[in-house]
Design a protein around this nucleic acid. Structure first.
Lengths: 112, 112
DNA sequence: CCGCCATGTAAGCGAATCCTTAATTAATGA
DNA sequence: TCATTAATTAAGGATTCGCTTACATGGCGG
């Protein structure tokens, strides 16, 4: 019953699948049709469509219809938000808490 | 049947839940016991334990037992990996592909 | 017009996710 | 020793996920 459908959660969930990450990596080198995008993967076309729907809901791709082809284009704005979150929680604090933890451990060991 | 249990996938999946992100944000300010960590959330203790298990499997926290308390400590190394991925796929390419897409669109429109 | 072509939608299946209540372990302190 | 506190494990339910096959849609070339 998680209300995990805020923007950030959608993005992280989209990134949590290796197939979808590979698709984004491919799109990183330029727009592609669904067929081109599907080519490297041993799964059915509907499965591909469903992965693309997840990416689209997360705002990570845009699909433009032209003739019978759907061209997918990467949209990296949502990654900015994800990057912000990760960067905010990364680095610089590590060593500090390592030290604090060590200290706590020593204190505990000191009073058996 | 996704083999989505590589390190990166575990991390992104762990980050895909707002409760778990809030827990990490709390831990970012220093280690905490499970009780302290649970306090802001209106869900049961077992639910909290399960969230912590997900974070631990992703390598994002470490639990050290001392007396009847489990102290949770943030481990940010996995975030480095996630950050690397995101940064690699972000920015700088946007405008380039926007232009390319525009151009393609114009070409298509040009031959009706 | 008709049958390929590139996609999407529908329906269903097994596994995973997120939550619950009930029972369990383990340390504390009167 | 016994009740209390802190947390986990077990079991179950509802929902979502990732995949499948079968069918539908819609543009295009003959």
């Amino acid at each position: 019953m998680a209300d995990a459908d805020d923007e950030l959660s959608l993005v992280f969930r989209a990134l949590a699948d290796p197939t979808r990450r590979a698709m984004l990596s491919r799109l990183h080198r330029g727009p592609a049709t669904v067929g081109e995008l599907a080519e490297p993967f041993p799964i059915s076309r509907p499965a591909i469509s469903q992965h693309l729907a997840v990416l689209e809901r997360a705002g990570l791709i845009e699909r433009t219809v032209s003739a019978q082809w759907r061209t997918c284009t990467l949209r990296t704005e949502p990654l900015d938000e994800a990057s912000d979150w990760v960067e905010r929680h990364r680095g610089e604090w590590n060593e500090r808490f390592d030290l604090l933890d060590e200290q706590l451990r020593r204190m505990r060991r000191g009073t058996p």
